[in-house]
Each structure stands twice: as C-alpha cells, then as structure tokens.
Amino acid sequence: MSGATLSVREVSWQAGQGTTILHPVSFELPAGQVLGLAGANGAGKSTLLRLLYRFHKPSTGSVFLDGHDIWKMSARSTARKVAAVLQEQPTDFALSVWEIVALGRRPHGTGFSGSGRKDQEITESALDTMALLPLAARSFGTLSGGERQRVMVARALAQEPELLILDEPTNHLDIRHQLEIVALISSLNITIVTSLHDLNLAGRVCDRVLLLHQGRTVAVGLPQDVLTPSHIEKAYSVQARVEQLASSAETHLTFHL
C-alpha cells in the first residue's frame, strides 16, 4: 500500500434547511502522513470526514487525491482509493470475521472467501495485521466491541486504500488495543485522516492536526503549533497547560475548567 496526497480546498457543508454545519476548510496532507481532527462534540469532525469519503458532496469546494477531484471519479474508483472505518458497525452479525474482512476486496471486483488466491492472501494479511487470525471463523456477532472495531480496521486494510479515514478508531477499545491501533496508525504507509478525542494521543501519532470549533478552523499545522493552551481554550472552553514529562522528552496536556 502507498498513500496519496490529499488536498482539501475550501470545502463546506450545509444541512437540508441551509444551516451551515461546516464552514470552508482547507488543508494539504502529503502522501503517507497522518492528520488528526480534534474539537469538542459538534465541532464538525464527522461532517468533514463524510466529505472525504464521499458520503456527502461538499456545498462548496473540492477534495483532491493526487490531483484528481473525487467527485469526478466513479464511486467504484473512489472506493478503490478511499476506505473508511466508522463508529457505526455493521448489523449483519451472521457473517464470519473472514467474510467481513474479505468484503474489503469488493471494490476490486471480488469480496468473499471463494475469491482468487491474491484476494485470499490480502484478506489473510489484513487479519494477521490486526491479530485476528485466531478469530477468522468466528461469527461477527459473537465478538466484543473492541474485537469488532479491529475487524472493521482489517476490512479497510483489505481494501488496499491510498487514503484511510478513521472516525474515533480507539472507541470501545481497552488500553492494550488502543495502543495497538496507535502503533498501526504510526506504521502504515498510507495517508490517514482520523478524528480523535484524546489530544495527547493526537499529538503523539499525528504529523498534522486540524482543530475545529463549531464548524470553523481554529488552527491547522504541526501538533506543537496547533495544540497550544490558547487554541485549546478556544476550541473546548477549558484551560490547558503543557507539562514536560520527567521520564522522557514528551509533553503532556492537562485540562482545567
């Protein structure tokens, strides 16, 4: 897998009655980098993600992958380049873990265990990456919330995307599997946009951070330039302090009402 350059130019989105949910947002994300979206509930993070994986068409502006407007590509072509892991999980609990992950091959013309050798190898590799091979024959409906989340990430990896969209990927996960997802985000050679509630996590794994407040950009850039006390106070209406951890060179944010 390899990443694509993502260019977002003045994209906005309005609800049906004309209420603007997301005001114009612009940023550039080089291939292979990770962008973290941060902001309080209702800031517009999920709306922006929906524009990136072509669920909503922008009211204004454009989204480009390697210079190609995703709304001038076919839906199938876009699905071969963009994969999304959402907070909502599938309801077809009768399928096995293998079958769910194999569905990631559908944009390439296949998608079940009877597919060709290449598809089976890619499916197996995605399961292995997420430590799911021992669960491959299990029914999806028998899994815990954390296990289901890992299955959905594996399905996205089986899609072999150039852009991976992750909507709160650490939700429902215990600490161990949160750390595994973080390590995965850091190691994948694809372009990633992920929404994260944990600002310390965002600062740790993201190459760039976009901070939103009520549908508007507060700041976008390097984590150390965006995750400042003044920006965080504007976005969350809380006081923040940057602390240097004694045991390492890392910084840590603490918050106060």
Rank of each mutant, 00 (worst) to 15 (best):
A137Y: 05
F64T: 11
A83R: 01
L257V: 14
Q89R: 13
S26T: 15
A84M: 05
R50L: 02
E180G: 01
G221M: 06
S96M: 02
L135A: 10
L173T: 10
R155Y: 09
T129F: 02
T228P: 01
L65W: 07
L245C: 06
D92P: 00
L173E: 10
F27W: 13
V97Y: 02
V25A: 02
R117N: 08
H172N: 14
A75T: 14
H197R: 10
P90S: 01
A102L: 03
S59V: 04
G203V: 03
R50E: 11
D128I: 10
L227W: 08
L210A: 10
L222D: 15
P223Y: 06
Y236R: 03
A40E: 11
Q224F: 07
L164N: 06
G32P: 04
L173K: 11
H197V: 05
K118C: 00
R148Q: 15
V238R: 08
K81D: 04
A83E: 04
I232H: 05
T19Q: 14
I190R: 03
A75I: 11
A202R: 06
G116N: 15
L179H: 14
T194G: 00
S26K: 09
A183M: 00
D69N: 15
H213M: 00
F112S: 09
T228L: 01
T5V: 14
V63M: 04
L103I: 13
Q224V: 09
S26D: 12
Q33C: 08
S59I: 07
Q239T: 10
L201A: 05
L245R: 14
H177Y: 15
D66T: 11
T5Q: 12
E233P: 00
Q214Y: 10
D225W: 06
